[in-house]
Design a protein around this nucleic acid. Structure first.
Lengths: 224, 224
DNA sequence: TTCATGCTTCGATGGTAGCCGAAGCATTGT
DNA sequence: ACAATGCTTCGGCTACCATCGAAGCATGAA
């Protein structure tokens, strides 16, 4: 039964954490629920079997999101009923520093700027996205060659795809991975637009003032 | 949390029994859930504390009903989620298989056979169902008159509808209520097809061998 | 009053499910 | 190649909670 799935406090915490529409990894959900990863794994497989959440594999991570709006709707309804009796559950907001702004995801740009970049590329028909698969358009190739001196033959790789949608850690939306994503990040570094933070282990990417301006000129969106 | 209240099978059975909008006494709900009155009392106080049901005292009875339409709406939403995964509720409630097979719901037939009867009537255009409302067709009237000697004027009643969809507790689907449902059950008894179980308080309906055969001839479905 | 019915509370029991430690895969990084 | 990380599976332990018997209050009837 679905209700019993939601009834368990640990699972309810996980689902509540997913209510903002973003996807979370199994470990993050474990932390949200205050349980160990192995317990969380058990819960998540039950939620998946019940059709409440859907997994998306990304490297060695496993992102979970609510299956669809129907699930979210029912959860909201339950929350509404709970609110009437005064039993409300507090949702702690994402408490991330400037790491959310820009950081390295493997070898490409992630964070707010990374998501923004892919958004803009999609808007301007530089790429076409279908679920996880992203395809570089002819218009996109021209754009890359003209503004960033990136040619298609630089992106060829025997096993790795040129473009790939990668789920963003902080924004919970897709950013651009693949050889193109890596090439773009590399070019940003070469152009001194941005560089990885000096502190070891940090994944923060620091943009220079000039670099941020140039980046915005190419990939900035309207309300920026 | 609200969901954990609904999550328990016994409580879910009670709530489902209340989904038709009518109020039921604590003992009736206990019977519906297949548990003893003292267990039901515990459950009902929890449901009341959770704001899902409201009691109404009447003599030495205590009638319970769903608090409002919001509660019913959320319950339907949950049922919807359960239905689409095909992951219907596990029947842990009542032990009595005979009770699931055929029983009295107020004054009409419920259980597997009751649901089956309405299904067949719908298939053969004897009735037309739109949500909770059921309408007897001209074809249905002929059928009833021919095979069961039931005429439309026998079904007239100032306030009670002729046909009504009643949510079946064990099958989670509709069976036929209203004056027609009552008339059918009465006719089954008169024809010695079936009779209520002798043990006082029991809601089981026992079909005779011949009665079951006749019933199947009229309302049996293909895969039976 | 006395009895019967409907419901609740109390106490004890048992089954179930959440939980974690340890170990096993899978993927990635060096 | 090896190590590190993320996640899963397995086994056992434990705590919770539904369940029922027995007894205690109510209300209504005789």
């Amino acid at each position: 039964m679905v209700a019993s799935l939601v009834g368990d406090p640990a699972r309810a915490n996980m689902l509540t954490a997913l209510m903002n529409g973003r996807a979370l990894t199994a470990s993050e959900l474990a932390q949200e629920a205050g349980i160990t990863p192995q317990t969380a794994s058990s819960h998540l497989s039950k939620l998946e079997a019940g059709g409440l959440v859907e997994p998306e594999k990304q490297g060695r991570h496993r992102y979970y999101r609510l299956t669809d709006d129907d699930v979210a709707g029912v959860l909201e309804g339950l929350a509404g009923l709970a609110a009437r009796t005064g039993h409300m559950r507090v949702r702690t907001g994402p408490k991330d520093p400037a790491l959310r702004r820009a950081r390295i995801c493997y070898d490409h740009l992630a964070g707010d700027l990374g998501v923004q970049m892919l958004d803009t590329m999609r808007e301007r028909n530089l790429v076409r996205q279908k679920k996880q698969d992203i395809e570089l358009t002819a218009e996109g190739e021209r754009f890359l060659a003209k503004h960033l001196q990136i040619s298609p033959d630089m992106l060829a790789h025997p096993r790795r795809p040129v473009c790939k949608a990668c789920l963003d850690w902080s924004e919970r939306r897709h950013h651009l991975a693949g050889t193109l994503g890596a090439a773009l990040m590399q070019r940003f570094a070469e152009l001194k637009w941005a560089s990885r933070d000096a502190t070891p282990g940090s994944r923060v990417v620091n943009f220079t003032r000039a670099g941020e301006k140039q980046f915005a000129a190419l990939f900035g969106n309207a309300n920026d």
